[in-house]
Nucleic acid binder design. Structure first.
Lengths: 339, 339
DNA sequence: TATTGGCACTCAGAGTGTTGGAGTGCTAAG
DNA sequence: CTTAGCACTCCAACACTCTGAGTGCCAATA
């Protein structure tokens, strides 16, 4: 059983280490915090914490540093979420004012989050959710290809090229476009697959084949979150924190450059406490992020979580501030999308 | 007047320095190259080159390092464009095979270029060029806002939110949309501004006001290259080359993260020799890129340059290889777009 | 006049001691 | 359980030396 004082010691170590970036020893610990006991006692507690693998000594006769496990215990049980100060709140308000379309809103959001935390920020584009079809456009793009564009009423545009395998018959494509729009305009995305069936009535085999190709593609886009996308900001913050990443920052850069890695990472993270999800150091399955921590929160539209946003930084980060920043920005984004 | 041998010495210094990353001295120079003269003679030449500010000694009794001016002379007069080896050609072919829509093609291209050069690669999205309007969509996006989407027949989509200042009249927006499409579908972008005028005939003052707002926005999009966009790949390569950037890589990261900076940079660069444009070190007006060089080439569609692509790396980069890689990728992209 | 060998000089960087201080673990006493 | 005391460890900083690569200059030479 871990004593209460040991936990206090762990909290103190984490806090001091985050502040000073130096391993923290028993003596400076009793100086800076009022435990009411001597350094020797603290040392006993530290020995215990080390047995539990919550802290770790980089070498004999050095202070201690929290392990991933130590940080985890800290955020789960010892840290309070620091409320934003008024300057930060103001920054958020100002940043969001006058946002126009989705691209711009998300672009602003990701920059805001990176400025607020001084970390790398990421925002995932929303999934389609409850939107409905506004317009479908088919554009002959090459000899045998058609570009399909779907516009939804939540102002998103999805596009994809369909390879037909045969030459494009412009007139037929025009007819199909009209039929699709007649059948689907105003229809919720969730209803598209059922409503689309009637469209192919009365077609001959050749036409049917082409139509089915295009419709299949359309359906792919409707349910596909494969189209997901993440935008980043503040990559330069990594370089500034370079000393926080043992070895090099380049594996981290590589990881965040790979949309696939980020999407996988994000999708694995489900909200825990405070509506925020956290991965610390080696908890990230991806090797390149072994020295990084990820803070993620979902944001909503019409009451449903539609995507996530968050920050990536060194394991030695200020969890309290970052968690509260991520939460706050997620809330403001939810609010902005509500309008 | 610079003697031929001095130029040879400069070339040797640049080559050795790029290869070894160490300042190069007179002795190792005569060992590695057959000048047919002694080290003392080379030293005289080096003194001359230093007077001309083509090379520079980091400190007394160290070897010499090319200056920006030295690199410039090197690329302009001394270097040959290194043809790609067959492995590289193969890589390009394989990479481009099966590209589908524009997004994907450009995405592949930028990754290809970064792999080929081991530098940060960038690709600018094409300007609208000679495209024509395929479809215009107006979507009420909020109380007083309309999302305008323009689809062109070269498979590009531009969107923007228009703030009307008054509540959206859905029916009128629908009518306007129909009128715009009737007037503009199939019209070349260059013709849009003249053809659009008739649309507002017979409208009352209120309708006219709204229409003009939307039309103004439409025209903005037509001629605007402000909508331009650049995609990046291989940022992690910067971190790997960290020692090549005196100080820190973070100013460089900051610069390339700013689309505005990159766009300005690119727009200032007009093709020089070999169809490639080059900025070396402080030739970049942007301060953060003082230790970086930029290699850029345009790519074409239907015989017109529609946008640019290139790489960013340390001033001490292998110019020959990078120039040829940028050229080759630009050509292949041009070819791919031709299909 | 251009080239060369020789020479004295410089200096960064690597290697080696030396030292001080912060930190530890252990033990015996309170 | 806590504490003071003590012996021990080891990093970091500093000073010092040494070496090798490199330089500039000069007088001799072709």
């Amino acid at each position: 059983m871990i004593s209460d004082r040991s936990l206090e010691v762990l909290r103190a170590i984490v806090q001091d280490y985050i502040a000073s970036k130096e391993p923290v020893g028993s003596k400076s610990l009793v100086e800076r915090h009022s435990f009411g006991v001597s350094a020797a006692t603290i040392r006993n507690d530290m020995a215990f914490l080390e047995d539990e693998e919550l802290i770790h000594a980089p070498h004999t006769s050095a202070g201690r540093v929290p392990t991933d496990k130590g940080y985890r215990l800290f955020v789960d049980r010892l840290s309070e979420v620091k409320p934003l100060n008024s300057a930060e709140k103001l920054a958020i308000e100002n940043f969001m004012v006058g946002s126009a379309d989705l691209d711009e809103t998300l672009g602003r959001t990701v920059r805001l989050l990176s400025q607020l935390t001084n970390q790398v920020a990421m925002v995932q584009y929303p999934t389609l959710g409850k939107a409905s079809v506004r317009h479908i456009e088919l554009i002959p793009a090459a000899q045998t290809r058609v570009l399909m564009v779907m516009i939804t009423d939540n102002a998103r545009i999805q596009q994809h090229v369909v390879e037909l395998g045969t030459d494009v018959d412009e007139q037929f494509v025009g007819e199909l476009r009209a039929k699709l729009n007649a059948a689907l305009a105003g229809i919720a995305l969730s209803e598209v697959s059922s409503k689309v069936k009637g469209v192919t009535a009365g077609m001959n085999a050749e036409e049917l084949k082409i139509s089915n190709l295009i419709i299949k593609n359309l359906l792919d886009q409707v349910d596909a979150n494969r189209q997901e996308k993440i935008i980043l900001a503040g990559t330069a913050n990594l370089a500034k924190r370079e000393e926080d990443f043992p070895g090099s920052i380049s594996p981290v850069l590589e990881a965040i450059e790979e949309q696939v890695v980020l999407l996988k990472l994000i999708s694995e993270m489900q909200a825990e406490q405070h509506g925020v999800s956290l991965r610390i150091g080696r908890e990230n399955t991806f090797e390149g992020l072994a020295n990084a921590s990820v803070v993620v929160s979902g944001y909503e539209n019409q009451g449903n979580e539609i995507a996530k946003l968050g920050v990536i930084g060194p394991t030695r980060m200020d969890y309290s501030s970052n968690i509260s920043a991520v939460r706050a920005v997620a809330r403001y984004l939810t609010k902005t999308l509500g309008n």
